[in-house]
Design a protein around this nucleic acid. Structure first.
Lengths: 240, 240
DNA sequence: TCTTGACCTTGACGCGGGTCAAATCAGGGA
DNA sequence: TCCCTGATTTGACCCGCGTCAAGGTCAAGA
């Protein structure tokens, strides 16, 4: 780990902090002050950044690279909660809650992390009410998302996959002659983990969707032929 | 629903708002101002307070009674997220996130709810930085709790039950000759829903724990004979 | 062309647990 | 005391999915 001189803020660190949605409305000077308190870590791929159960004394912001947040179940199975990229905060909720880290974090690629303290963040929101509002809104959205995750886990795997593809198709689908084309952007084994299952079961789920005629699968590229059918299989939420 | 005159704050409403941990550090005057903006609803048992999917325009605080927060899965199964009592906030995260309610809420007993607006809460935390800190901490704790819920759902039902009984035994167990006695305080069918299962499976889980010799079951009263064994079945976390 | 290895797919099998149905139990009222 | 209603328990059955094992595909490299 490298300690940065407060007087010299790395441009990539400043940019990443500026991009972080937790304090989007904060002033430039507040972010700079914040950035100058950061401790920057450049880590190779596969580095354990923090371990579940440790006291949560600090939090991070991803400056570059990808970071995986996951839980190791008692039987050794790994549940991936999320994969973080530039500008995303790492374990900020644990640090704010003041307890212990509820999950592990490790780098998936070579990555740079800026580490900050809970108190620095409290100072920031005390000084800038707009930032407090950003932070509260973001935390509230996380809770809502977790609620959705719990609900999704009640669905079977094909439905979870359908819901995932539906969201991806709407958010990042490229129109093509036969339908919306989605690039998974990760190995299917990775997707399986993100959906809370294993590659074999995911493979069968893809086969089901293919046989139902709602998607075509070509390696990592998936063509959604029937968006509405996909939404139905994913149990509703056609709205919006 | 009854609109309260701003000049006359119902004492039970004031007390409930005062008790709410979201703004524990707020001044008396701030809470009174907040309380005077509340709209109070006295609802009989079984009243639907809000429905999943509706725009989240307001949030509530339970003044009296019990409120169940739950999700209806596509197949009609009901998943109870939590049961709220006096001083607990209702759907405050949805209101803060500004989206739609992620779950249903209904009264389990006759209940009184004080309804408040998102803007009133933002005004409160803008005026009182300490309250902002309370709110942020509480939201962060909710996220951590949800993380724990997701992890718990990865366990089988006997393990989930063991974990639940372990926590209850530590938090509210009465020493008795043979061990810690815990009163479930609800029908087993209710407990089954809270643990994400059905009464039949819960009954079998109790039978497993009984046959293992870690608990005795007498209706709603459970005597924990072997706290350590219970913790082991619940997959660890003996610490603390 | 022949490896080698990463990734994906398919089949067989077992277990957990949800569902249906029936038996049992518990409490309240006439 | 007897009956009725709701809660709880038990047994039988089925389905989803995780696991183990066996290919299959593809690309890089010798």
């Amino acid at each position: 780990m490298t300690n940065e001189d407060a007087g010299r803020i790395r441009p990539d660190v400043r940019a990443a902090l500026r991009e972080c949605r937790l304090w989007r409305s904060a002033s430039e000077s507040a972010v700079d002050a914040f950035a100058s308190s950061a401790r920057v870590q450049d880590a190779p791929r596969g580095t354990a950044l923090l371990a579940e159960g440790e006291p949560a004394e600090r939090f991070g912001v991803v400056v570059a690279g990808k970071v995986r947040i996951y839980h190791l179940a008692a039987d050794g199975r790994r549940i991936t909660f999320e994969t973080l990229e530039t500008g995303d905060p790492v374990s900020v909720v644990a640090a704010l809650a003041g307890g212990r880290y509820p999950a592990h974090a490790e780098t998936v690629t070579p990555a740079t992390i800026a580490w900050l303290t809970r108190d620095a963040l409290f100072d920031l929101i005390a000084a800038e009410p707009e930032a407090a509002r950003d932070l509260v809104t973001d935390l509230a959205n996380r809770v809502v998302n977790f609620t959705a995750v719990v609900q999704t886990l009640a669905l079977d795997v094909p439905a979870r996959l359908a819901r995932y593809l539906f969201q991806r198709a709407l958010a990042a689908g490229n129109p093509s002659p036969s339908g919306l084309e989605v690039d998974l952007g990760m190995p299917k084994s990775e997707l399986a983990s993100a959906l809370g299952t294993v590659p074999e079961t995911l493979s069968r789920a893809f086969a089901r969707l293919r046989d139902s005629g709602v998607v075509e699968v070509h390696g990592r590229r998936v063509v959604v032929l029937d968006v509405r059918g996909l939404a139905t299989l994913g149990s509703g939420y056609v709205e919006e």
